[in-house]
């Protein structure tokens, strides 16, 4: 094997390795475990209470005190996310006003590529009552396969603290009642 062939082979394997590594991050799949997403505990006491978090500085989604956590990946800059915001507020109200859902379902948003300022501006613009978290360096967005926004996934949390992904889908949520029923069934709560 001459030098050129050897170098071409090295190049080939480097390309294959890089492609494999690049494709390793894909959107969350139903039934799978969630990649580790570390979030900062919100400074607002009501939001800490809502998530059932203690005074730790950071947490992961399965640590939220709930049986189902619905996560929206959004961006302040995304027209569909802007359009979806009032509907999600209604979903939050529907959950909070239902005594059977209130303590079991929680809703959070993660702003892909959004700074704290941008996330807060989004919250203020649409009067969003549930916790929103910035992901200004896209580090979370990369872990979940660089999905388009809005993207929704739901995590089922078992009583023993184990979890699995119940739902994973791009685009807006169509029918909230059907969505909640589907999550109740998949979480074994119905």
């Amino acid at each position: 094997m001459n030098k050129i062939t050897r170098r071409l082979l090295v190049l080939f394997f480097l390309v294959m390795f890089t492609c494999t590594a690049a494709s390793a991050t894909k959107p969350p799949s139903e039934g799978d475990l969630l990649p580790e997403i570390v979030l900062t505990v919100p400074p607002i006491l009501d939001q800490q209470k809502y998530l059932g978090l203690s005074s730790e500085t950071t947490f992961t989604i399965p640590q939220i005190k709930a049986r189902v956590v619905i996560v929206e990946i959004f961006s302040m800059y995304c027209p569909y996310c802007q359009a979806e915001a009032p509907a999600l507020n209604k979903l939050y109200d529907k959950i909070q006003n239902n005594s059977k859902l209130k303590d079991r379902f929680k809703l959070i948003g993660i702003g892909a590529g959004n700074t704290t300022f941008e996330v807060e501006h989004f919250r203020n613009t649409y009067k969003i009552p549930f916790p929103l978290f910035p992901d200004d360096d896209f580090s979370i967005h990369k872990k979940i396969g660089e999905v388009r926004t809005p993207y929704f996934f739901a995590v089922g949390i078992n009583k023993d603290g184990t979890h699995r992904i119940l739902y994973s889908h791009p685009g807006r949520l169509e029918n909230h009642d059907q969505f909640i029923n589907m999550l109740l069934q998949r979480a074994g709560l119905k």
């Binding site: 690049a22 967005h141 926004t149």
Partner: peptide, 18 residues
């Protein structure tokens, strides 16, 4: 250069589903 481009050409930009 090839490896660099392959790693970084897919940089995230949070594109809207719109």
């Amino acid at each position: 250069l090839t490896v660099f481009l392959l790693i970084f050409c897919g940089a995230a930009f949070g594109l809207s589903e719109a």
